[in-house]
Every structure is written in C-alpha cells, then in structure tokens.
C-alpha cells in the first residue's frame, strides 16, 4: 500500500531507517531493504546523516522504488540552495518518489567536513512551503512549471526538547505549512512521549515516535551524548547489569514498541547498523 494511503488508515504505521553507504557498495543496503520491506510500511533513506558524505538519498530511493518498495526521501536544508532543493524535489517526482521528509539537517560541525559552508538557504518551513508551491505548478521564482509534482510531506519533531512549548509551536507551524506526517527523534521515555503526543494529537496528523536499539554499553554512552536523547535511569540500569547488553537492548526496544502500540500512531525504527534485527524486534513487540 502507498504510504500516503496507509496514513489515512487507523493501522499502527511502521517505518524504519537505512543509511546510504559511504562508497558504491550497495548490496548490503539492498539486502537490508529486502528484509525490511516485508515488515515495514516505508523505508526512510537518510540524507548525508550526521553531515557525513554518502550516496545520495535520491539514488537509493529510486533503487528501492525499482524493487517495488515504499521509501521516504529525507531531504535536509544543509547542503543545497533553493535552486538545488527545488530541482531535487522535481527529480524525485519524475522518478516516481512521493514521500519526502523535510528536515534542517545535522549541522556541518557534527560531521566530517567541519569547515565547509553550511547552506541553510531555505529553512524547513520554507522548504515545506516550496514543495507545496511546486505542486501548484509554480516555483519560488514565480515561474510556471510544465507539469507539477505531488508529494506526501513529513517533518521531524523532538519530544525531548526543552523548552517543550517552543518545540510544539514549531511543530504546529510545520503542520500549518502543509506536512502530513511527523517522525520524531529517538525516544526512550514513553511517559515523556505520551505527554508530547497528547498535546499535539488533536491536530489530526500521524506522529511516528523514533526508537533506537541500544546495542551495547558503549553505544548507550554515545547516545547519551547526542542532543536531546534522554534515556531513563531504569533502562540504563538494565543495559549496565545485563549479561548480554545486545539482547537486552533488543528486548527494551521491543517493549517500547509494544507500549506504543497501545496509544501511538506508529513507530519509526532507527536500528543504526543492525536493521536485520527489526523483524525480530517487531515480532517480540506483539504483532507483525
């Protein structure tokens, strides 16, 4: 089913994220996509995540499309000006790609090219509006298009941001600009997410909370250092005292998804390198 149609159902929506490779070896990614396509509604393809240079998300989304899979093209404002961003939106459309997740993108200082020019010519609100404008057959320069695209647009939110009210104002602004779904940054604290969700659910838009598998003690320490990642103490204790932290991480992730099934619109799984375990996690979380 098309992701856009899926959003219109009352089903628990499942998305997962894959990173394009650094280099041209794509068989590993495609193998993972083959595994995921059986259990998720759409596969997000990141856009040079953490400001590291990789294969472009557009190319990978096209490869997934050729295999008959629903993908979500992630598009950041970091690396392209308004000419390139609009051009890539049109390119996505002619390649048959409809789902686009618009985000500002990790700052260049987080990545491999610290001294490079961070573009941010458009911000997320402007890019959402630009995409909606292209759909009307006009571009940002006011020029008419010969044939116009159609998108299913999403954006991100961070339920752990503080002050939260500011994040909610921003989310509402993105909704008003025309997004149809939201994927959030990683949450570990269900209570915190539920509070966030209850504040915004009246907006009648699908919100997919992000979850991540804690693969090891070292990985947990890495996650804790990321902006906005809040791992409750009881979860930290479970990982620290586990005989096998990897299995415990899988179990915790499955439990989180299980709890989300009770009230949330769905889940967005960021397994960061162990995507082949996602079917197992989903199975453990209740239904598949």
């Amino acid at each position: 089913m098309k992701f856009k149609n899926k959003l219109a159902t009352n089903d628990f929506i499942i998305t997962a994220e894959l990173f394009p490779p650094k280099g041209t070896e794509i068989s590993t990614l495609l193998n993972k996509a083959d595994i995921l396509a059986k259990v998720v509604d759409a596969i997000n393809i990141t856009d040079n995540q953490r400001a590291s240079m990789r294969v472009g998300s557009l190319a990978i989304c096209k490869l997934l499309k050729d295999r008959g899979y629903e993908s979500i093209l992630q598009m950041t404002c970091r690396d392209r000006n308004r000419i390139a961003l609009q051009s890539d939106l049109l390119s996505a459309s002619v390649l048959g790609l409809e789902n686009v997740l618009i985000l500002s993108g990790d700052h260049t200082s987080a990545g491999e090219y610290i001294g490079t020019k961070a573009v941010y010519d458009l911000d997320t609100i402007q890019l959402i509006k630009a995409a909606r404008l292209l759909e009307t057959g006009v571009d940002l320069a006011g020029k008419k298009l010969k044939g116009s695209p159609k998108f299913c647009l999403g954006a991100v939110a961070n339920p752990t941001a503080s002050p939260l009210d500011l994040q909610l104002l921003m989310l509402e602004k993105k909704i008003n600009a025309g997004i149809e779904f939201v994927q959030t940054q990683t949450i570990f604290d269900i209570v915190q997410f539920q509070k966030f969700f209850d504040t915004i659910r009246y907006k009648n838009i699908k919100i997919l909370p992000g979850v991540t598998v804690i693969k090891s003690v070292a990985f947990m320490e890495f996650l804790k250092k990321l902006p906005g990642v809040n791992i409750p103490q009881n979860i930290q204790d479970r990982i620290l005292s586990a005989k096998n932290p990897f299995d415990e991480g899988i179990q915790i992730c499955a439990e989180t998804i299980c709890k989300l099934r009770d009230f949330a619109d769905g889940v967005h799984i960021m397994a960061i390198g162990i995507e082949e375990y996602i079917p197992d996690i989903l199975k453990k979380s209740g239904k598949i």
């Binding site: 500002s104 200082s109 961070n158 104002l169 602004k173 940054q185 902006p227």
Partner: peptide
C-alpha cells in the same frame, strides 16, 4: 547556528 529564520530546529536542549 543554522541561521533559521522561521523557528528552531529540533536540536535545542
């Protein structure tokens, strides 16, 4: 840091 003029990104903590 990103020069965003329509509101913050999700990265403030």
């Amino acid at each position: 840091s990103k020069g965003l003029i329509n509101g913050p990104c999700g990265g403030f903590v």
